[in-house]
């Protein structure tokens, strides 16, 4: 369980460019959930997840992960970092090793695991993100952008974190690459039973795969609920400058036109079933 109490973060405290990125966030996230974190640019999403991953220390407030308070005296930060895997924005720019294998192995070898264990984990992670075994011996710099992204994600997965945080993992990918990465992440969540936090400002991405959504606005948590509940409030979302999925928009318009559809439809399948039901009546 991740518990945030009154968490705030201010950049450049005291300087002329002081800026509060996150203010007074109270949030409890359960293990095993697939959580979507959304909000538009500058709403504090990235700062929030970096605090959860223990990379930056909150200016005030506390973060607890499974009962351990981050940055407290009796808390081993390295151990916590091995427990949480963070895939940052454009993670392909962190690749540095000679071969893909070595790069994916960077995390596990920092954990000082035995060699055969590392090998197993690398192969498992590579398979999970859909990298062919022959790619493992190539240099990461000769791969395509989409493949690099997958190598970078595999590098985090190889640490087998219990909490996986992904910051806009689909930014800059073509629609096919985007769907594939999202599909892999969903698959991973199902197979490994881990907690996943997916940051995105694309509603379409989140609607299909998350079961809970946190909406951030101006550094504060604006909403936190089940995915189906969130999309019932499409008007509020649009006020915050967030687009609801296109299918939700269509259903809203149909309802305004007099078709008795229920609220909170956010996938095409749901809409299809609902419309069929209404038309049969």
């Amino acid at each position: 369980m991740i518990k945030l109490t009154d968490v705030s973060y201010t950049y450049m405290t005291g300087g002329p460019f002081e800026k509060a990125a996150v203010s007074d966030v109270n949030l409890t996230l359960n293990n095993g959930d697939f959580i979507g974190l959304m909000g538009h640019t500058g709403s504090g999403k990235s700062t929030l997840i970096q605090m959860i991953a223990g990379l930056i220390k909150p200016t005030s407030g506390t973060i607890e992960i499974d009962g351990q308070t981050l940055h407290s005296k009796d808390c081993n930060m390295r151990k916590i970092r091995f427990k949480t895997g963070l895939v940052m924005q454009y993670p392909e720019y962190q690749l540095f090793e000679e071969t893909v294998f070595k790069d994916i192995a960077f995390g596990p070898s920092n954990m000082q695991l035995p060699d055969e264990d590392i090998k197993r984990r690398v192969e498992f992670a590579a398979d999970l993100v859909g990298l062919a075994p022959e790619i493992l011996e190539k240099s990461p710099f000769e791969l395509s952008g989409g493949q690099k992204r997958r190598v970078a994600i595999a590098g985090v997965l190889a640490m087998e974190p219990q909490l996986l945080i992904l910051d806009e993992p689909t930014a800059g990918l073509d629609p096919a690459g985007r769907d594939e990465i999202l599909c892999k992440i969903k698959d991973m969540h199902r197979r490994l039973g881990i907690t996943v936090i997916l940051v995105s400002h694309s509603m379409e991405d989140l609607a299909n795969i998350t079961n809970r959504i946190v909406v951030m606005n101006h550094g504060r948590v604006a909403m936190h609920d089940k995915t189906s509940e969130i999309f019932k409030k499409s008007e509020e979302l649009q006020k915050m400058g967030l687009a609801v999925p296109q299918i939700t928009e269509i259903c809203e318009k149909l309802r305004a036109a007099g078709l008795p559809l229920s609220e909170g439809i956010y996938t095409v399948e749901m809409a299809k079933a609902e419309i069929e039901k209404v038309l049969k009546k």
Partner: peptide, 13 residues
Amino acid sequence: DKIIKAQTARGAD
């Protein structure tokens, strides 16, 4: 800063 954070997240010391 970003790269340091990313590598720290992967357990670099």
